[in-house]
C-alpha cells in the first residue's frame, strides 16, 4: 500500500492505495465519484477520460499511485460554481449531444481538453480529437455539433440528421 495525496476537483484527498489500483477504481470506489464511467476497461472507449495536471488521460490506464501530487479534474467538477451546466454541458443538452449518456462524461472531458488547446476547432479537428471516445449509440454527429456550438461557432449550417 502507498499513501497518495492529490487534488480532485479542487479538494485535497489523501488515501492508502494498492499499487495496482487504477484511477477509475480510486475515483469510483474510494471517492464515490461515479461520474467517471468504465466502458471497456481496455483503453479503447474514453468514457473514463479525466484530466491529470490538465492533460486528457484515460482513467482506466493510469494508476492512482502515479497521480500522487497531481491535480485531477473529473466530470463532477465541470459544472459552474452555482451548479448550472457549463458551456460544454449546456451545448450537449441543447444539441442533443447524448442519447444513452454513458459516453458523455468522457466526451465532455475530451471536449474541454480540446477547446483549451484549440478554442475554435474545425469539424475535422473535432472528429480527429474524438478518435479515442466511442459513442455506442453512434450519436457522433450531434456531439460534434455540440462541441462546435460550445466553442461559439455557428452550427446552423450543420443539418440535424
Amino acid at each position: 500500500m502507498t499513501k497518495v495525496t492529490m487534488t480532485v476537483n479542487g479538494k485535497t484527498v489523501s488515501k492508502e492505495v494498492r499499487g495496482n489500483m487504477l484511477m477509475t477504481e480510486f475515483l469510483r470506489d474510494e471517492l464515490h465519484l461515479t461520474g467517471t464511467h468504465v466502458g471497456c476497461d481496455t483503453s479503447q472507449c474514453g468514457a473514463c477520460n479525466i484530466h491529470v495536471n490538465g492533460a486528457n488521460v484515460k482513467g482506466c490506464t493510469i494508476f492512482a499511485a502515479e497521480c500522487d501530487g497531481a491535480e485531477i479534474a473529473t466530470i463532477e467538477g465541470q459544472a459552474n460554481a452555482d451548479g448550472s451546466l457549463n458551456v460544454i454541458q449546456q451545448a450537449f443538452q441543447d444539441h442533443h449531444g447524448l442519447q444513452c449518456g454513458f459516453c458523455t462524461p468522457g466526451m465532455v472531458m475530451s471536449a474541454a481538453a480540446l477547446l483549451k488547446e484549440t478554442p475554435k476547432p474545425t469539424e475535422a479537428e473535432i472528429r480527429h480529437y474524438l478518435e479515442g471516445n466511442i459513442c455506442r449509440c453512434t450519436g457522433y454527429h450531434n456531439i460534434v455539433k455540440a462541441i462546435m456550438a460550445a466553442s461559439g461557432q455557428d452550427v446552423s449550417s450543420i443539418a440535424a440528421e
Binding site: G46, V57, S110
Partner: peptide, 9 residues
Amino acid sequence: IGDPAVRSR
C-alpha cells in the same frame, strides 16, 4: 499515434 489521451501518457 493512438488518440489524444494515449498521446498524453
